[in-house]
């Protein structure tokens, strides 16, 4: 599904502070599987994830999505692919304050110009699935940590993406909520979605839901999975 060929990412190229976050990574991520990118902080997990998720372009190498070469696509096409293919769950819920939960959930669909009524139905349905229907009208500031996390999951799903990308999703959750999150991941898998998670939380990469674990260190893949 996603194929990375000899991908590099260099920051501040040409200046003394140049450093390469990713050094020649080859990676295949298969469809309908849960893949975990594991590694210490600074190992390039997030950078790799942002390349996989079409958020940034590699400095060298090739990225293929469903056999389509997307390495040198202009940003506007990349964004178009991204918002239709990927749903993002961040370490922080990253919700926008001051607007309602419902609006936060609908946010990723705004640039697509869908009719508001249908979009609203979709958003309410998504909130309902994660037991948040009572919170639709409330402000983001009033949510608990777990609720905020779930709202951000609903937001990630609003455009019905094929691939879910989660960056350290359990970093700020307690054990109970982390298990709850893995249950949700399980549901995604059951729905036939592909899930990519970065984490150094054993609760995540040792979970039975996870199919593949990729080890990353200093911007390179470690040959032997731990």
């Amino acid at each position: 599904m996603i194929e990375l060929l000899n991908v590099r990412k260099v920051f501040n190229a040409g200046s003394p502070s140049e450093f390469s976050a990713i050094n020649g990574v080859d990676l295949r991520i298969a469809e309908n599987r849960v893949t975990v990118l594991k590694g210490p902080s600074g190992s390039g997990k997030t950078t790799l994830l942002s390349i996989v998720g079409c958020m940034s372009r590699p400095s060298a190498g090739r990225v293929k999505l469903r056999d389509r070469e997307i390495t040198s696509l202009p940003e506007r096409f990349l964004t178009d692919i991204r918002r239709k293919t990927f749903g993002f769950i961040f370490q922080q819920p990253n919700l926008i304050k001051g607007i309602s939960v419902l609006e936060n959930v609908m946010l990723p669909a705004y640039p697509l110009g869908e009719k508001r009524t249908t979009l609203k139905v979709k958003a309410l349905h998504g909130l309902n699935e994660l037991n948040l229907s009572g919170k639709a009208a409330s402000k983001v500031e009033w949510l608990s940590g777990g609720e905020a996390q779930r709202v951000s999951i609903v937001r990630a799903l609003i455009n019905d993406p094929q691939i879910i990308i989660a960056d350290e999703p359990t970093a700020h959750l307690d054990t109970k909520l982390s298990y709850r999150f893995m249950e949700i991941v399980e549901q995604f898998k059951a729905q036939g979605k592909t899930v990519i998670i970065t984490s150094h939380d054993p609760l995540v990469y040792d979970s039975k839901t996870v199919d593949d674990v990729v080890n990353l260190r200093d911007g390179k893949l470690e040959s032997e999975p731990a």
Binding site: E75, R76, F88, F90, N94, I96, L107, P111
Partner: peptide, 15 residues
Amino acid sequence: REIGILKAVGWETGD
């Protein structure tokens, strides 16, 4: 941060 979030969830520069 807000603009970063918007762009992360799928807004394009043009948007």
